[in-house]
Design a protein around this nucleic acid. Structure first.
Lengths: 204, 204
DNA sequence: TAGATTGTTAATCGATTAACAATC
DNA sequence: TAGATTGTTAATCGATTAACAATC
């Protein structure tokens, strides 16, 4: 399979979520323009994305929701379970634990890490919270490959170094500190302050 | 001024943050390659962005940090204060209140909204939390123009309708539900689950 | 058939990067 | 001067959209 564009991967995740929801409502088939309307994008974009993963629909009924959901899963899910750690169990870390809880079958949060003794050793939102001193141990023991960084800004770089040394393969950095993971891992950064400033700028 | 590219606006926000930090460290001037290294991007991109806002540096010393910071502010900050509401005072809402607290002078959080009686009427992270029934009242009274949506997925659409009716000009939607604000406001959507699935996919 | 739909190529748009003149 | 830097245009890359053939 040719490498999928980043934006297509993002949309596939979103298609799947609304497909699951439509399926729960008893819907069996969906047209590209219906799926597009649900996400406020164009029908062409939907069809092109679906084409890129090699799935085909029918001219009469559009796409079979079950089948399409499965096709998307075959592309974006790993064959094996991917294990995730939340590094930093503050408000943001807790929010993510809540969101991801039991949602995806192939992506499971196996551990949270913090320094606060009121959090370490406890179970938060169903996830065991360890002291960050145990980072390497737990990552290796639990075979965790993905880390979500929600530590304070000044901890981002030292913690990243430890994550990479422990063999982490993907990092989602919610810290305002830019980090570098080359060539060991895949990195996605998201900065809330920047997003707010962007909205402020374009809504002037 | 010609319309700035979205990505340039995002980076300007980030340049400013690291410039402020370098300035606090006593640094007075900075070269494009230094600024680029701090953000892990290329020096050309830095120079091009700076060119787009009409700022110029010097061949000897690069950019004057004070001046550049001011130039960026002149472009991305509003002349008048822009007021922000956090709609949904859960973990994510609280995280954002904490991050934004006292950071930017022209962007101030004026209110949070929730339905939970344990939160409404109280002050959280220095921000007054109102019941969502008072949404329209407070937005108008406080002249709030930007909303950050952190309500549960099923509330996103009804709450958005109320925000637009109340005259909100920009929405940052952290809900997994896609919303539509045309033609009344500017919209930015960010979906954490999608980001995590993207990292999972590309780190396979 | 007429109308609606999918699948796909070509064109366009937006963003990044290469190349390089100017200059201190 | 030689070396390093900025500012800027042109080329490239990536993503979206327009156009349309095929078909039920």
């Amino acid at each position: 399979m040719k490498k999928l564009p980043e934006k297509t991967v993002e949309r596939l995740s979103q298609y799947r979520r609304v497909l699951v929801k439509e399926s729960e409502n008893g819907k069996l088939h969906i047209y590209s323009h219906e799926l597009a309307a649900l996400l406020h994008i164009t029908p062409v974009q939907v069809r092109r994305d679906i084409m890129l993963i090699g799935h085909t629909g029918t001219l009469r009924k559009g796409y079979d929701i079950q089948e399409l959901t499965k096709s998307i899963g075959n592309i974006i899910d790993s064959k094996t379970e991917q294990k995730v750690a939340i590094v930093g169990a503050g408000n943001l870390g807790k929010a993510i634990m809540g969101y991801l809880k039991g949602k995806r079958t192939k992506l499971t949060i196996k551990a949270a890490f913090d320094v606060n003794p009121e959090k370490t050793g406890r179970v938060i939102a169903g996830i065991r919270c360890y002291h960050i001193d145990d980072l390497e141990d737990i990552i290796q023991k639990e075979n965790i490959s993905i880390a979500i960084l929600t530590v304070p800004a000044e901890e981002a770089i030292p913690v990243t170094d430890r994550l990479l040394a422990a063999g982490i393969k993907g990092i989602l950095n919610y810290t305002p500190t830019p980090i570098n993971v080359q060539p060991h891992a895949y990195l996605e950064e998201y900065d809330m302050i920047t997003s707010i400033e962007k909205v402020a700028f374009f809504s002037k």
